[in-house]
Lab assay of single mutants.
Amino acid sequence: MSIQHFRVALIPFFAAFCLPVFAHPETLVKVKDAEDQLGARVGYIELDLNSGKILESFRPEERFPMMSTFKVLLCGAVLSRVDAGQEQLGRRIHYSQNDLVEYSPVTEKHLTDGMTVRELCSAAITMSDNTAANLLLTTIGGPKELTAFLHNMGDHVTRLDRWEPELNEAIPNDERDTTMPAAMATTLRKLLTGELLTLASRQQLIDWMEADKVAGPLLRSALPAGWFIADKSGAGERGSRGIIAALGPDGKPSRIVVIYTTGSQATMDERNRQIAEIGASLIKHW
């Protein structure tokens, strides 16, 4: 067993022997301040990774656009098919120029040779490549099948209805392509620590998230040296922004954090800054 596999296998073990965790309302004060600064709703939840206990939450059962955070769930569904012998990570998928959609920095470079399922998941999570996500959605049967996968996990809230990039439209009061912070946090925890996926697939999923290259201005910008984070960000229309993450000190994750916002007129930089400040408060009061 590799060191990384050992780390993920012992996530519940280490967490069980940690000192009790206590909620700190100071972080919620910052979440509410972010709402004021952005002029928009902000949803927040913080779960203990081992027990699933909610440590703090704000608007945990209000719907927010998922945006690209759905790509972690998508690759979880792909990995479940791999575990069941219905898919192979090494299978190569070929596609054409007509398949390319807006923001496809990886797939646009491989029109000639195609990409493997493993490479597509890596591109979808680490670079948020939209064509990679659409190609992977095709392998599982489309958005409705991802929703069905989530329902089978016990998540009857999260739903995907459309493809990239239309799913980022974020129309107010439109339930399409949305989740709730509580539902997303619980589902992410199941994917990373539950028995739904094999140990190898859980490790692969967290490795992809740990290698995320496009979430630097968010929670990662607030992390002290030595902290662990595996995350996936999302951005959408109407001032929408979000991030889902597993993080913790001492090089291992111990909490799940989900943050979503929508309806702001603020710039992307300002949305990023507010999420980073929430992260800084979380870490300060850990």
Rank of each mutant, 00 (worst) to 15 (best):
V42Y: 06
I275Q: 01
D250F: 12
E166L: 14
F228D: 03
G85C: 08
E61T: 13
L79V: 06
G251R: 11
R7I: 10
K144P: 10
A182Q: 13
T262L: 07
P172F: 09
P20R: 13
R241I: 03
Y44K: 00
S80H: 14
V117C: 04
V214L: 07
I206G: 10
F14Y: 09
P224H: 06
R202N: 06
L111V: 15
L282G: 03
S201L: 06
A77T: 08
R241H: 04
K144V: 12
T187V: 08
R162D: 09
T112P: 12
S68F: 00
E35D: 05
L282Y: 03
E119K: 06
M127K: 09
G154D: 09
M127D: 07
P249A: 08
E175Y: 13
R59F: 03
G226R: 10
N168Q: 07
E87Y: 05
E56P: 00
D212L: 02
D99F: 07
A246Y: 11
L146C: 05
R118V: 10
K232F: 00
A185D: 00
M153P: 01
G142H: 04
N130T: 02
G236C: 03
L19Q: 15
D212P: 05
R238F: 14
R162H: 10
R220P: 02
G216T: 09
R81A: 10
T267L: 10
M66C: 07
R189V: 09
L146D: 00
L135W: 02
S2A: 09
L247F: 05
L205W: 03
I259W: 03
G142N: 07
Q265M: 12
Q88C: 10
W208K: 01
M115R: 05
S51C: 05
S68I: 00
L111Q: 09
D212F: 02
L38R: 05
N134D: 06
R63H: 08
I125H: 03
T158L: 01
V42F: 14
S201F: 04
L135I: 14
D99C: 06
T147M: 07
K252G: 10
G90R: 10
G234F: 01
E87I: 11
G236H: 02
I140E: 04
E62C: 07
Q86R: 12
V21W: 05
T138K: 15
M268V: 09
P65L: 03
G226H: 11
A266K: 13
P143G: 06
I125D: 00
